[in-house]
Write a protein that binds this DNA or RNA. Structure first.
Length: 140
DNA sequence: GTTCTCACA
DNA sequence: TGTGAGTA
């Protein structure tokens, strides 16, 4: 089975521009009929990997390195390389989450501090006692 | 319809 | 990590 650039673009919800972009970056090398690109099932499988990798935040360069490892026959080695990239990305994403959580905490605290008195009357903060109430009574 | 290139965010 | 416009 073969596919045109529009076939795969439609199937994966990307533009034909993106497909050529991936090709330019060396992630995929479709055959040519004249000047027109002809994508094989193998190209389609690689594209699926590209999209999945992109969706979890890997760079195209990282995806290419994983794809390149598939030129080896050693499946164990392929998996080792992929896992290496996944772990690294996982650590980065978790770090991002920690920063986001910290920002949320700071913003919530600031809001409570600045507008707490007004907001509290109508919408009590979570927990049985608000921070403001604790401050007023001096208890914890 | 598909290709390529250049500018642009 | 792509998009838009213009072209052949």
């Amino acid at each position: 089975m073969t596919y045109t650039i529009t076939d795969l673009a439609n199937e994966f919800g990307i533009t034909h521009r993106a497909l050529r972009f991936y090709e330019e970056k060396g992630l995929i090398e479709p055959a040519r009929k004249g000047q027109t690109r002809i994508y094989s099932d193998r190209d389609r499988t690689r594209l699926r990997l590209i999209i999945n990798g992109r969706d979890v935040g890997l760079t195209l360069y990282e995806i290419r390195q994983i794809l390149d490892s598939y030129r080896k026959d050693d499946v164990t080695e392929q998996n080792r390389i992929a896992v290496e990239f996944f772990r690294r990305r996982l650590a980065a994403v978790k770090e991002q989450r920690a920063r986001v959580d910290d920002q949320i905490d700071r913003l919530e605290e600031a809001c409570e501090r600045l507008a707490g008195e007004d907001i509290e009357a109508s919408a009590p903060r979570r927990g049985s006692r608000s921070r403001q109430a604790e401050l007023r009574t001096g208890t914890h």
